[in-house]
Computed example of a mutant assay.
Amino acid sequence: MSTIIQGDQLRTLLLGTRVEKAYPTIAVETKTLFTVAGGKVLITSLVGEVTTAITVAGTTKLQANPTTGTTGDLCAATDLGTTDTPAGDLISFQGLKGDSIVFGVGATPTLKQPIAVNTGTIEQVTATGADGGITWVLTYIPLDNGATVTAA
């Protein structure tokens, strides 16, 4: 039996374009993960895979920081390290305002509610305690012609 459509083609049809950013050594900082250019995009999924275990108590959140306008949280700050998050765990959030990051069993790769963001950056804010590493994968659909997302 032949395959007419490949997995990456199906993903692009359902979720949009895929972009990946490795953050191998988490630090207490605001780290730019992705750059949004050329206009508005709709984030359809945003999931991280823990590449190095997170074992130190500390808060992490994701935020959109537009070039013009107000910076806004994509999810609530969540402690990923008090109960260790081992390498291989997936982390994500639902896309609903104020949701915490979900990790381990129950992490969903697609957002229940896609998020529109404007030109600017998507950032990981680690305010306290930091160790481990995460590789983030974001999928998006351009809302404006020419809008793109790239790894920072």
Rank of each mutant, 00 (worst) to 15 (best):
M1Y: 14
S2Q: 12
T3M: 15
T3P: 06
Q6P: 06
Q6R: 15
G7W: 11
Q9S: 15
R11C: 08
R11K: 13
L13V: 11
L15N: 10
L15S: 11
G16C: 06
G16R: 00
T17C: 04
E20A: 11
K21P: 04
I26F: 05
V28D: 08
K31C: 06
T32Y: 09
T32L: 09
F34A: 05
G39W: 05
G39S: 08
K40F: 07
L42W: 02
S45A: 13
L46D: 04
A53Q: 09
T55Q: 05
V56A: 12
L62N: 00
Q63R: 13
A64D: 07
N65I: 13
P66S: 13
P66T: 11
T67L: 08
T68F: 10
G69I: 05
G69T: 08
G69P: 05
T70N: 13
T71C: 08
T71R: 11
T78P: 03
T78R: 02
T82E: 07
D84Y: 09
T85C: 11
D89E: 14
S92L: 02
G95I: 06
L96H: 10
D99T: 13
S100K: 12
I101H: 02
V102F: 05
F103S: 13
V105Q: 14
V105F: 12
A107H: 13
T108V: 12
T110R: 05
K112W: 12
P114K: 02
I115P: 00
V117Y: 00
N118F: 07
T119S: 12
T119R: 02
T121V: 07
Q124M: 15
G129Q: 02
A130E: 04
G132Y: 02
V137E: 07
L138F: 02
Y140W: 07
I141F: 09
N145E: 13
N145I: 13
A152L: 06
